[in-house]
Each structure stands twice: as C-alpha cells, then as structure tokens.
C-alpha cells in the first residue's frame, strides 16, 4: 500500500479520470475538474500533474486512434492504474473519515 499522499490537484485529476473513464484526456480532464469543483485549473497544471502521477505509477497514458478529421491526430488519453485506484480509494477513505460527523458535506454543484 503506497503511503505517498496525494496533493489536492493530484486528487482532483485522479477523481476526474475516475469519472471520465475512457474519455479522459488533457482538456476533458480540465473541463471535468472545472465542471465538478468550480476550479478553473490551467491545462499546463493538469499536464504537469499527470506527469507526476505517471512517475508515481498511478496513471498511464494510452493513444487513441487518430481523430476522423483531416490532419487528425491521436489523442493522449489517461487511465488509472490498479495502484492508482487503490491510492485514490485510500485517500477517499481518509477524507471521508475526516469529514464524518462534521456536517460539512455540501450538495454537489450542478452546472
């Protein structure tokens, strides 16, 4: 069990990957974070975070087929590794533990 703690942005990116599934790539991740958390995250920060997570072996990239347009390029998609999923669950557990009984849990934002 990795004891490496996740930073806030790392947690957000990984949660976004979880939500997006097969559709997770740079801009969709950024948008998912913005949509769900309200944070306008810089795309560069998302890339840097993904690189860091890749180093920790929590995420791996995979290349999609080229887009079906002229000059269409492959997109670099990301997915959680089993290690990453475990790390995410562990982080969620500790967060849930900390939040329990505080009555802080707000309604999720809808946009």
């Amino acid at each position: 069990m990795p004891k490496a703690r996740l930073g806030e942005l790392e947690l957000l990116v990984m949660l976004a990957l979880f939500h997006l599934g097969h559709d997770a790539y740079g801009i969709s991740i950024r948008q998912e974070i913005e949509r769900r958390s309200g944070h306008d995250v810089a795309i560069g920060a998302v890339y840097a975070t993904l690189a860091r997570l890749q180093e920790k072996r929590f995420v791996v990239p995979w290349l999609s087929d080229p887009l079906p347009v002229r000059g269409g390029r492959a997109r670099k998609h990301w997915k959680l590794t089993p290690l990453g999923e475990r790390a995410l669950k562990s982080a969620a557990t500790s967060l849930a533990g900390m939040l329990e009984g505080l009555g802080l849990t707000p309604e999720p934002r809808r946009s």
Partner: peptide, 9 residues
C-alpha cells in the same frame, strides 16, 4: 498559468 507547472514538469 500553465507556464510554471509546465516548466517544472
């Protein structure tokens, strides 16, 4: 806002 994180990366 991307410049900093990217440069670090």
């Amino acid at each position: 806002r991307s410049l900093g994180p990217l440069a670090m990366a």
